[in-house]
């Protein structure tokens, strides 16, 4: 079994209807959480998540906030799961990523996704249909900007003359992760030789299938992915007993899946079609199916160890342990992180 790295996340900084908070409180709490996780060498990475123009203030500027996290921490890596790359200017992402990487002494894991919500593209005056091309051209701009010399890129979506992006990143090779929620994005990631982040909506069997697809695609394309990591987002919670863990986390997880993700057509029905509020029955069923998947990483430390071993057995090499649910008592939240760091990860 491959070694399994564990990161934690995913910080969205939402002030939700059920758990309204002052935003400054949420940002302060993130910095405190980051410093807390930084104490535990077993927690490899802290992961952020992004959306724009959403009613609950979902964090829109991950690399900016990463600057704050870098200043609050000394050791932990800082990743994005994921930055909605097609909604950004690639050159600006490259500049900011380089500064974050310098500021943090080389702790950036740059995680990128396509983005999918129409009104986020509308806000930035970007046609959603161009998102795949923006993504692929954007990656070339970023890679070129991170290298020596000028960028000089002419594409259909981005055109950058011969200017040199400075500062350069601290790391010679900043890890790029691509969020991959289906077959096409997995193939795209394989083509790029990028690490991948699989969605939290997958069963173990689906996960295994996606990972196989990634390696097969890379082989067919002749791309070396030996250094790439296979990440997966999995919701989880650790408490002293299973019963405590269920009582603390399950209601919040149900709410997250049904209201927070479900409404965005993020979940799929049994045929793989997206479901939203317009199909409440199917949405409930989809959320219910996922709760039973994630339940395997909710419980006492021994149980969560087993759940993570199952994930490692699929070929995944990095789990983003998703402990951020709405409206959780803070002391219990920190206790869950501590148990994860001290009782779970060392025993996987």
């Amino acid at each position: 079994m491959a070694d399994l790295e564990v990161g934690v996340g995913i910080w969205s900084l939402q002030s939700t209807k059920a758990g309204p908070r002052h935003f400054s409180y949420l940002y302060k709490e993130l910095m405190e959480d980051a410093a807390f996780c930084d104490q535990f060498p077993t927690i490899k990475t802290i992961w952020q998540t992004e959306h724009h123009f959403w009613y609950d203030g979902y964090c829109p500027s991950l690399l900016t906030v990463a600057g704050g996290i870098a200043a609050a921490t000394k050791r932990i890596r800082i990743g994005q799961a994921a930055l909605l790359f097609s909604q950004h200017e690639a050159l600006r992402v490259a500049q900011q990523a380089a500064v974050v990487d310098q500021l943090s002494g080389g702790r950036l894991d740059l995680g990128l996704a396509l983005g999918y919500r129409d009104n986020e593209f509308d806000g930035f005056n970007i046609d959603r249909r161009s998102r795949r091309r923006r993504f692929e051209e954007g990656i070339q701009v970023v890679k070129s900007a991170f290298g020596q010399g000028g960028v000089d890129f002419q594409g259909r979506e981005f055109s950058v003359p011969d200017v040199e992006v400075t500062p350069k990143p601290y790391q010679a090779d900043v890890p790029i992760w691509v969020a991959a929620v289906g077959a096409d994005p997995i193939k795209r990631a394989a083509k790029l030789g990028a690490s991948i982040i699989l969605s939290d909506a997958l069963t173990l069997e689906q996960m295994r299938h996606h990972i196989d697809l990634y390696y097969t695609s890379a082989e067919e394309l002749g791309v070396d992915v030996s250094k790439a990591k296979i990440g997966v987002l999995r919701r989880g919670w650790v408490a002293e007993t299973d019963d405590e863990a269920y009582r603390e986390a399950l209601p919040s997880l149900r709410f997250l899946l049904r209201e927070q993700l479900g409404g965005w057509r993020y979940l799929v029905d049994e045929q793989g079609e997206p479901v939203g509020f317009d199909r409440p029955k199917e949405l409930d069923a989809a959320a219910h199916r996922l709760v039973s998947v994630h339940e395997r990483t909710i419980g006492r430390p021994e149980k969560v160890v087993r759940g993570l071993r199952e994930i490692a057995a699929t070929g995944a090499t990095h789990v983003i342990f998703g402990t951020r649910f709405d409206s959780l008592p803070r002391q219990k939240y920190l206790r869950s992180l501590e148990l994860l760091a001290t009782e779970v990860i060392p025993n996987i």
Binding site: L63, G67, A71, Q96, A98, V99, L103
Partner: peptide
């Protein structure tokens, strides 16, 4: 420095 946003957050 090319990003006063990143450094400003820090």
């Amino acid at each position: 420095n090319s990003s006063s946003s990143v450094i400003g957050a820090a």
